[in-house]
Design a protein around this nucleic acid. Structure first.
Lengths: 225, 225
DNA sequence: CGGTAGGTTGATTGAGATCAATGGCCGTGG
DNA sequence: CCACGGCCATTGATCTCAATCAACCTACCG
């Protein structure tokens, strides 16, 4: 098991970064800027010009749109090592808001036109980038499954698989609220809370506010289908 | 309004094809093969090796996965001019089945490694391809909205916007069954049927089996939010 | 023609939404 | 330092929309 210090190092190191093959392949880094965000601070604002791709170094973010009733629809969470911004390439401007979920969220900023230039000079990386974006086409299919129980079980599994250095039975921290989970899974916060309580009662997980621990991974997998 | 013959020409011509800037940019076409499919005939089979990208020249297809209960989950429809296959790049094998919805469906086949090679020799097309794939990250957000009515209204609008040469008030043909629509929108065929009947009763659309016509686009847009 | 798949409509049920009340945690300011 | 207010989470009671079960109709195909 990793010590907290080792975990911290791993999380902040480029070794966890899905972008590092590109970044490290260059004589100098592709990263033009590193941004530090506080909780609720915006990284991308709807309709602003698309200029950068971002890589999460530390912390977590949510991407959402607000509907005409003011309701927030979250369509993605981003964790350490993950990249974001591709959705805006086509439109040329941001099609959602992205804000930090935790204080001390750190992201690397890669200017899109520099990124394209580098790709042109290193065409062997092109396939890698296509595969990276392709992967995003297939994520979070589980938000569409039938029951609240299935979706929440799948969400917990997804979360643990995306948390670098997550160890089975080790507590994970949910960086988002019940409301956020509900918005993402299209459930109410009350339903999320009820299902989590049921999972706890049945000794599938332990949960105390934002601290969650998978007790029975097999059963959880079964519930997720 | 286009005559049926003009429509046919347009549909089958490369002018409607989102891939044509790439294909036509080459001395000879990128297309290695043209495939003709009958209704229910498979283009891609789950787990088969990923080798090609496809462009729909004519007809329509559905992509789906079958769950452990044997239920078919459709995650995409593909119409004339649209490309498919990107989802398999990351895994290297097909992660869904793709079958034709209509007899006489025609697709162009582009070998992925040839496609990559051509891209490397024409880096100015990189951005175009990234934008093309980026677009797919943002499609069919509407399957996630709240009510059956909203989803079906949005589905009809999406369908008409993706039908080449669709003219307002002109009848569109739904190439898929009520069951297919339900599978895509996560509703039952009965609910789809009921909502369509309600839209018809309220003079928002006219519908007779597979022939659908938007009578009141403004009201439909309102219902879709 | 007869068989079958697809489509419509009705009656009933149930999972999750909604409405509501309570308690804990935390940051702020007197 | 503690009081206050706001936010978040939990739990209960009730309601509602879509699923389910069921019957019947219609188009199409061998």
């Amino acid at each position: 098991m990793l010590t907290p210090i080792e975990k911290k190092l791993c999380s902040s190191a480029c070794s966890c970064c899905s972008f590092s093959p590109l970044c490290l392949a260059q004589a100098h880094s592709l990263v033009s800027n590193t941004r530090h965000l506080k909780r609720k601070e915006a990284l991308c604002v709807l309709n602003n010009k698309f200029q950068n791709i971002y890589i999460v170094k530390k912390g977590a973010l949510k991407a959402y749109q607000v509907d005409i009733h003011g309701y927030e629809h979250i369509h993605a969470f981003y964790f350490t090592g993950e990249t974001l911004g591709y959705r805006a390439i086509h439109a040329g401007h941001h099609i959602s808001n992205v804000v930090a979920l935790t204080d001390d969220t750190v992201v690397c900023e890669v200017a899109y036109d520099q990124f394209i230039d580098k790709l042109k000079s290193k065409p062997e990386l092109y396939e890698y980038v296509l595969a990276l974006i392709s992967k995003q086409l297939t994520t979070s299919f589980y938000v569409n499954v039938a029951t609240a129980e299935q979706r929440i079980a799948a969400f917990i599994i997804d979360l643990s698989s995306r948390t670098p250095a997550a160890v089975p039975l080790q507590a994970l921290t949910l960086p988002m609220s019940r409301q956020d989970i509900g918005s993402y899974l299209r459930l109410t916060a009350e339903t999320v809370s009820r299902v989590l309580s049921r999972f706890k009662r049945d000794h599938i997980i332990s949960i105390d506010l934002k601290q969650i621990r998978i007790i029975n991974p097999k059963k959880l997998q079964e519930l997720a289908q």
